[in-house]
């Protein structure tokens, strides 16, 4: 049964130095508050896993919390590049970042295999691309048809962290809107933390709602607004202006560092 806890205690208990951590959420429901809490706990040497690193991993990479990044699309959606991600890969700032990249289909299948506790997933893809030579995939032949396919290795992170709209007092979680790969990430991981906009007495079924039973989750913490500047459908709106602002701010190392210290990392911010 999921333990209802605070964000600070949940992060402190579940995320350790050097862990492989998947903070998932495909454009929607990105767990920014939890990611920031991981930074305030000073966790470093992390293997960060996310299909779309987005601004959250740009921030985590920029402050030097990541040793390795596993991803499939490192852009600022609709705006451009991710400047801290680029600076780490192109210039090794603030320190070199090891990368492993896939396609979206590859990452999605890796999470699904991880959730199923299968060693790999089979798919059509990668063949003919230069990705074949630069990432972890292998050619396999279908034993039934002889078709040449690609196998991608399962992803089983130490910890998955996701954000959802609501949970009940038993820790059953419901999210709706774009579901991304969050359910797969939670079921693939050894440990899991879910932050929610609100705790309710009873979950009210929503069209397309994805419910994850509390007994499949380690901890649930209330974090209202915890997906900003991403969004929680029906509760908060995506802050597109912030995504544009980030493109300008994050180009400069000093401006980035000052902003992070002032808005994310400072003691007084943590106390809020």
């Amino acid at each position: 049964m999921a333990e209802l806890t605070t964000l600070r205690e949940g992060v402190g208990a579940l995320i350790r130095e050097g862990d492989s951590v998947a903070l998932e959420g495909f454009t929607h429901l990105i767990p920014f508050a939890a990611g920031h809490e991981i930074l305030r706990h000073g966790r470093r040497e992390l293997e960060l896993i996310r299909m779309t690193p987005d601004l959250l991993y740009d921030q985590m990479i920029g402050v030097g919390a990541a040793r390795r990044l596993v991803f499939s699309y490192g852009g600022n959606p609709g705006v451009g590049g991710l400047h801290r991600f680029r600076d780490a890969i192109e210039n090794g700032w603030p320190h070199p970042l090891e990368i492993e990249e896939h396609s979206h289909a590859g990452m999605a299948n890796r999470f699904a295999a991880g959730a199923a506790r299968m060693p790999c997933a089979l798919m059509r893809g990668y063949l003919g691309t230069d990705l074949m030579a630069h990432t972890r995939v292998e050619r396999v032949t279908c034993p039934f048809t002889g078709e040449e396919l690609v196998a991608v290795p399962a992803l089983n992170p130490d910890v998955a962290v996701i954000h959802a709209q609501e949970a009940d007092r038993l820790g059953n979680v419901q999210l709706w809107g774009i579901p991304g790969v969050q359910k797969e990430a939670v079921l693939a991981a050894e440990r899991s933390l879910v932050t929610v906009e609100r705790i309710v007495d009873e979950l009210e079924p929503k069209p397309g709602g994805v419910v994850i039973p509390g007994w499949a989750i380690d901890a649930v913490a209330e974090a209202p607004g915890g997906s900003r500047p991403s969004y929680s459908l029906g509760i908060t709106d995506r802050d597109n202006d912030f995504y544009r602002f980030w493109d300008k701010l994050s180009r400069d190392r000093d401006a980035f560092t000052d902003w992070m210290n002032e808005n994310i990392l400072g003691e007084e911010v943590a106390a809020r």
Binding site: F71, Y73, G75, L82, H104, R124
Partner: peptide
């Protein structure tokens, strides 16, 4: 040692294949 690191594949390879 990229001169410019671009976002990467996203969904494109499988979209273009299928």
């Amino acid at each position: 040692h990229p001169k410019t690191r671009l976002p990467g594949a996203g969904g494109a390879p499988e979209i273009a294949a299928s």
